[in-house]
């Protein structure tokens, strides 16, 4: 399978810069998280790389082939998004047939998944509640035979039970047919363990692009008496800082200096992905 390559993508809406020279690569058969605060440019990025809107500059490649306007490449790329692109009376089965013509579609597996969400293939998407509409769209996304599947807010309106069911189905289909998934979500805690790689967008730029395990290995919360915490973190980039009485707690996302001894009373703990994310994208402190 080919790599998916994004090279120097920029996008402006009028004078507002939405994406600023983004470059990254996605490997075949891996699950990535695309994280960013509202307005960071996630949806715009997903729409560009799936050829729904144009970039002002830059290139998207599948292997060596340009994706824009390339039917063969686009048949390997599927985007599930919040936007509703279907006509009012379209049934699930009709949508599946349309997708089958472009991508190929696993009808049997889709029916099994639908049953889990208490849906069937005669459901009319426009008439479903937000949560069930999301469920139906997810079942479509998990059963198209594309090698790159992008999921923009895939849990919108899903209750906790259906979110868990989705995560299970995702693992199941991923192992049955390994392909790349990119999940854009705000429910970072829930997807942390599902992800292999993470791309963090902030203020129209990519600020992190690495394996989740590597990012978390260097993400710390350091707390203790203020003076000792300051001494220990001297020269490091302190992302957030808060104080409770004499106790100061700071976050740092970078390797700690090996040679520096951790003072007594200072405690080090690893951050989870959500707190790493909020530390990295927090503006103006707490």
């Amino acid at each position: 399978m080919d790599k998916f390559k994004v090279r120097g993508i920029s996008k402006r809406y009028g004078k507002k810069r939405v994406l600023d020279n983004l470059s990254f690569e996605l490997e075949p058969a891996k699950i990535y998280g695309l994280l960013g605060r509202n307005g960071a440019g996630k949806t715009t990025l997903l729409n560009i790389i799936t050829d729904r809107i144009f970039a002002n500059s830059g290139q998207v490649l599948l292997g060596d082939a340009t994706v824009a306007g390339n039917r063969a490449a686009l048949a390997q790329i599927y985007l599930m998004s919040e936007a509703d692109l279907v006509a009012k009376h379209t049934k699930f089965s009709e949508l599946a047939t349309v997708l089958d013509a472009t991508y190929g579609f696993d009808f049997t597996e889709a029916r099994r998944m639908l049953a889990g969400f208490d849906l069937d293939d005669q459901a009319v998407l426009a008439k479903l509640s937000t949560g069930l509409k999301t469920a139906a769209k997810l079942v479509l996304a998990l059963n198209v035979r594309a090698n790159y599947v992008f999921l923009d807010e895939p849990t919108l309106g899903l209750d906790a039970n259906h979110r868990e069911l989705f995560y299970q189905e995702l693992m199941k289909t991923y192992e049955a047919r390994p392909r790349t998934f990119v999940i854009s979500t705000h429910l970072i805690n829930e997807v942390q363990q599902l992800l292999e790689g993470v791309i963090i967008l902030d203020d129209s730029k990519i600020i992190k692009d690495q394996p989740v395990a590597d990012l978390l290995a260097n993400a710390y919360e350091i707390s203790g008496p203020a003076a000792k915490v300051d001494e220990y973190t001297a020269g490091l980039t302190v992302l957030t800082s808060r104080q409770l009485g004499k106790i100061k707690t700071v976050t740092v996302v970078e390797p700690l200096p090996d040679q520096r001894v951790i003072p007594d009373q200072v405690k080090l703990a690893h951050l989870d992905l959500q707190h790493t994310f909020t530390a990295l994208t927090n503006k103006g402190g707490n």
């Binding site: 868990e164 299970q168 693992m171 199941k172 991923y174 192992e175 363990q193 599902l194 992800l195 292999e196």
Partner: peptide, 15 residues
């Protein structure tokens, strides 16, 4: 199996 653990615990199979 890796598959069972990954689905049951909802952890990436590579992990």
């Amino acid at each position: 199996s890796t598959t069972q653990l990954s689905q049951e615990l909802q952890i990436n199979p590579a992990t």
